[in-house]
C-alpha cells in the first residue's frame, strides 16, 4: 500500500487512460505527475479539469510528448501555453466536456452506471452526435462513463489502510476519480496509523485506494 512515487506510477502503461485530480493547482498530485514523466509511459489519455498550468505538473507531461489526448472542461487559461502550442500544432486531441458532466461521468464509472441522461449541453454544439430524450417534458443528452486505468489524486491525510481525508477545495475531483480507476494512487501529506482517523470524517474509504505515496 505505501510505496515510493516511482513504484506507484509503475502501474501506468503506454496507451492508458489516466485520471488526474486537481482544479488548477489545488489538489494537483504534482509529485506523482513528476514520477510519471520519469517513468516514461506515453500515448496517454489524460482526464483532468484543466490541461496544465505553467511549465510544471501536467504541463510538463504534455511538453514531454507523452499525451495523445486530453479530456477536460477548461483547457484554455492564461498560463496554458504548453497545451495551446500542442493543440494549435495539431499534436494533441481534445475532448471538451462540461465540468458537471465530467464529474458525473467519472462518478457513473465508479458507481457501475452504464450511462445517464444529463440536461447539460442541450441545444449547444457539444450536443452534436449525442442521443437525446425528452423526459417529463425536458430534453436530456445521453452521457457515458469515463473510466481510468489509473487515477492520480492528492489528499491531505491517509491512514495505512488508504482511508483518505482531503483539505478545503483541494478535494475537488479526488473522491470521484478515486472510484473511477482500476488502480488509484493517492499522494498525501501525512500517513497515520489505522484507527487514528475518525470514521465519521473519512471522505474516500480505503476500498477505492490501491497505493499511497507520502510527499
Amino acid at each position: 500500500m505505501i510505496v515510493s512515487a516511482p513504484e506507484a506510477v509503475s502501474a501506468v502503461e503506454d496507451g492508458h487512460t489516466v485520471l488526474v485530480g486537481g482544479f488548477g493547482m489545488a489538489g494537483m498530485p504534482v509529485e506523482l505527475i513528476d514520477a510519471l514523466i520519469e517513468h516514461g509511459a506515453g500515448d496517454l489519455t489524460i482526464v483532468s479539469n484543466n490541461a496544465g498550468n505553467g511549465d510544471t505538473g501536467l504541463a510538463a507531461l504534455l511538453a514531454a510528448g507523452r499525451v495523445r489526448k486530453v479530456v477536460c472542461s477548461f483547457p484554455r487559461q492564461s498560463d496554458s501555453w504548453v497545451f495551446d502550442g500542442l493543440y494549435r500544432a495539431g499534436q494533441i486531441e481534445l475532448e471538451v466536456v462540461p465540468q458537471g458532466n465530467l464529474a458525473e461521468r467519472l462518478r457513473a464509472a465508479g458507481a457501475g452506471i452504464g450511462a445517464f441522461f444529463s440536461p447539460t449541453g442541450v441545444g449547444t454544439p457539444l450536443a452534436e452526435g449525442k442521443e437525446s430524450r425528452v423526459i417529463d417534458g425536458r430534453e436530456y443528452l445521453l452521457e457515458y462513463p469515463i473510466r481510468g486505468d489509473v487515477a492520480l489524486i492528492r489528499a491531505h491525510v491517509a491512514d495505512k489502510m488508504g482511508n483518505l481525508v482531503y483539505r478545503k477545495t483541494a478535494r475537488n475531483f479526488g473522491p470521484v476519480m478515486a472510484t473511477a480507476a482500476a488502480v488509484t494512487i493517492a499522494q498525501v501529506s501525512r500517513i497515520v496509523e489505522v484507527g487514528e482517523l475518525d470514521p465519521e470524517v473519512v471522505v474516500t474509504p480505503a476500498i477505492y485506494v490501491n497505493r499511497l505515496v507520502q510527499v
Partner: peptide
C-alpha cells in the same frame, strides 16, 4: 482558431 473551453458554464446555465 479558438481553443474550446466551457468549464462549468453549461451546467450552471441549466442548473
Amino acid at each position: 482558431d479558438a481553443i474550446p473551453a466551457v468549464g462549468g458554464a453549461m451546467d450552471l446555465a441549466i442548473g
